[in-house]
Structure formats: C-alpha cells, structure tokens
Amino acid sequence: MVTYFKEILTGFYSLLAGMAVTIKYFVKPIVTVQYPRQKLSMSPAYRGHTEFVLDLETGTHRCIACEMCARICPSQLITVEGVKIDPKKKVPRKYVIEYQYCSLCGLCVESCPTKALKFSEEYRLAGFSREDCVVDLLARLQAQQQRAGLAVTPRPEARREEGEAKPEGEVKG
C-alpha cells in the first residue's frame, strides 16, 4: 500500500519536473532563424562547389589544365579541356563541373598543384533540371573579374575546331 502511494506521488512529481523544464524553455528566446528573411553567415570553411582563385597579381586564374582534379575526383564529374597557348603554358578552354554528382570531399582542391581552386560560398543549389547544376568555372571567373573591375580573361580558342558543341545545357554563371 505504501509503495502504491509512493509510486503515484513520485510519478506525479516527476511529471511536474518535466513540465517545469518545458515551461522554462517556453519563455526563453527563440533559437531558430526565419530563413528567407534572416540568413546565417557561412562558416569560413564551408565547402560549396569549387571555383577558380582570382590571383590578384596576374588578374586571372592559375589553372594549368593538368587535369589532376579531374583524375582524383571520385565521381569523375570534372571536365577539363586544356589548350596550349604557347609551348610552355597550357590553359583551360573548358572547365565544367557537374555539381549534382559531387560528394563534397574536397580532394580536387587539395590535389591542385598550383592551388588554383577554392570552395565557393554558394549554398543555394537547388535547380529545376540537371543542367541547372552544371557549373562553368571559367564563366564564374569572368563574372568575378567583372565585379572586381579587372580585365576579363577570354576563353582561349581551341587549335582545332571540329564542330565542338557548346557545354551541355544552360550554364550557371
């Protein structure tokens, strides 16, 4: 009999203790952010898709089209086509990533011998089609240069043009 009442009382007390916790939080300020109106700042290490580092000394990218990134990529989503502009120097004519396949490992950035790649802070990545996720890094760089008021690096022409198609789909700038 005593245990019966004791259990009822301790049980009742434990319920009250739980309710005290929730009411304590009820009057506490809110911790969430109303997303489209308020935004959080991205952490400095955030890994978005990759983009070219804008080298302020030369005013352009450092990519030498060695294709190290394309080779190490686990999902094989980087397409680099290099073109030799002079016997010693090779630059990319096309650098496209198909971001929908990316697993954000960061191996491309680490493998780059000239440190030409960095992560962007782009986080709004939703698109309506597969093509919306294709990122053209050269186009991004050009936009970046325009914003910085620098000379825009033109796309080098390929030596041999054999009916080369445009990058598939619409390319995100």
Binding site: A45, Y46, L104, C105, E110
Partner: peptide, 24 residues
C-alpha cells in the same frame, strides 16, 4: 555541427581525415 563545419567544411557527411593526417 557549427563547430565541425568550421574545420571540416560540411555539416553531415564529413570527409575530413586524410591518409597521414588531416587537411585543415
């Protein structure tokens, strides 16, 4: 997640350790 985001760069499917150490 915020803390790990600072070092690993992602919030859920981390890929942070490398053979021979950590990259950051």
């Amino acid at each position: 997640l915020d803390l790990l985001d600072r070092v690993t760069g992602s919030r859920l499917t981390y890929c942070y350790y490398r053979f021979g150490g950590v990259p950051k």
